[in-house]
Design a protein around this nucleic acid. Sequence first.
DNA 1: CAATACGTAAAC
DNA 2: GTTTACGTATTG
Length: 348
Amino acid sequence: MSTAVDIAGPSSPDQGTTSCAKIPNEPLRRSLKRSSHPYTLSQYISTPSAPAPVDVSSLLQSSSALHHHHHHQQQQPPPHHPQPHHPQPHEEQQEQQRSSQAGPPSKPRRAPCWPDMWESPSGLHLAHAAELLMRAGLLALNPSAEQAALVQPGGQPARAEARAEKGGGGGGGEGSSGPEEEEEEDALMGCGTEFQPFLGAWFPFSPALFPLAAGFQMGGAAHWRSAAAAVAAAAAAGAGEGMEGLVAEGYSPGSLGAGGGGAGVGGRRKRKRCGECVPCRRQRNCDQCSSCRNRKRGHQICKYRKCEELKRKPGGPGFDSRVPGFDLRGSEFTLGLAQERAHAALDG
DNA sequence: CAATACGTAAAC
DNA sequence: GTTTACGTATTG
Ligand SMILES: [Zn+2]
Ligand SMILES: [Zn+2]
């Protein structure tokens, strides 16, 4: 199904060639004025200052939380062979590249490698499916089955681009990988589903499954790669989340005046992730979805990580068409497990 | 209506 | 100062 997936490239490079300033040319002036009219501040005010999400990390790593709660060290699956030196272009550069190369906005360089099929917010299904499979033990030793199931007949299913926040050499370039990696990996492994050894079974890397595989790899076969790289990656990634991640939510009624980009007039600041839904639990950006690719301009969290709570509008009448009785929150099993394992591995 | 762009709040 | 990410405007 998912035949209706947006195969077209969602990323509109637009003409904003330069970094982030509409100084040079103003082909279109979309931002005439950014007045905003949030919903009803009552909703926000009503928001209890109960810092629920804060405990998530603690819950996940009850034992690991002993050492400290500074940053959530997450697992970072090394993409592949350790490369001492690599020309890792920054996103900005990539942006400019693609932007400048194409005057008119029409798909700058979205390699056909990644059908946005995985990009679908509903892509979580993949993760769910994977978890189900794992639980069922179907992937025990059945690479063929998994491949056939997850791999797409199209040709280029998924490719690992793990490094993401490589962190590089301690600070500075945070970057979050980008399309460029595609080519790199392609050259290295030949643009194909990357099947990594997963506890004896082979798993295809996909944006949705990434975190899962990562966690398990670290826990089960962390030795498959340099521990140092993993640690570095983990640190980098962890920092990224620590930025905002899941902090206590507390709004100052008095401060609710203006601002919030869109939440200026009359409204509330910004809601926070619930921290319990599956998307919230994703620790890593897929780097493949529109948000990830356009994060520089879109300033939005990875589609796979977008909190379901935030997805629905507060005053929304129809709310969201959530499938009743199908709360993915139960999926915490795999996620929690993976994370736990990852943390455990990191902690030692 | 969906996707994207921008401003800005909030955590660091 | 940094970055991340929400919310809306604008665009399509
Ligand atoms: Zn993403
Ligand atoms: Zn959530």
